[in-house]
Design a protein around this nucleic acid. Structure first.
Lengths: 115, 115
DNA sequence: TCCATTAGTATCCTTTTTGATACTATACTA
DNA sequence: TAGTATAGTATCAAAAAGGATACTAATGGA
């Protein structure tokens, strides 16, 4: 690898993905396309309104997702991945793949421990 | 992408990389090979002993790095990436690449704002 | 004898992140 | 007229992460 630690930009990508609910939010938007706030809330089990709002705002601030407000009552707000946000997909896919292997790796380790 | 949000293992990979000093520690070990504790401390500017120890322990617990203690005084402890830990390299590389583009993206955005 | 060296711990403190809960506006419906 | 629905805020509390500082053991060297 030729990443010079001094010029490292890993943190930039990491910073965007870090947040208890961000990966799952992104996966839902990538998989299902545009979603309303309430749909996301249903799809992200356990998240509170406050946290969902916060994570969405942070992703929006980084241009990863787009927020569209319809001027009506009750409110309607739709969220979707931006073109730019879609560029995170390979990273998410790589992490998912690695994570899957890592889960196995840890299970093997546990089994060894019990022999 | 075919990651089902319900079966998502992104968090596993993310969890291992998250920690204020972990990426830079990993990059140094990947680039320079085995390093002593004191070398890492020099190479990771700003880190305290406590944090360096903590992050190293966490990486060790996940089998990403290996710790070898030499029974001598003053102590000598060497850290190195494991084979397994090396499998994170593509992810780090992808994040670095993305992060580099993201830095540019943000600069463009700032410039637009000042027009 | 005193000091430096190394790889840590121990303690206390601050900051950041996350969570629980209650509250809001406004239109539509029963 | 009371209740429902939506996308939030506000406030307070708890937990997690990070940081500052001081301390330790044992050896070699001045």
């Amino acid at each position: 690898m030729k990443i010079e630690p001094e010029l490292c930009r890993v943190e930039d990508a990491l910073g965007i993905l870090v947040g208890k609910w961000k990966p799952i939010i992104l996966l839902h938007l990538l998989k299902n396309g545009t979603q309303r706030f309430s749909e996301l809330k249903r799809n992200v089990p356990g998240v509170t309104q406050k946290m969902l709002t916060k994570q969405l705002r942070e992703l929006e601030d980084e241009d990863i997702i787009e927020r569209v407000v319809y001027p009506q009552v009750p409110p309607k707000v739709e969220y979707s991945i931006t073109e730019y946000g879609r560029s995170l997909e390979p990273i998410l896919a790589a992490m998912h793949e690695w994570g899957t292997k890592h889960t196995l790796h840890k299970m093997e380790k546990l089994n060894q421990g019990s022999l």
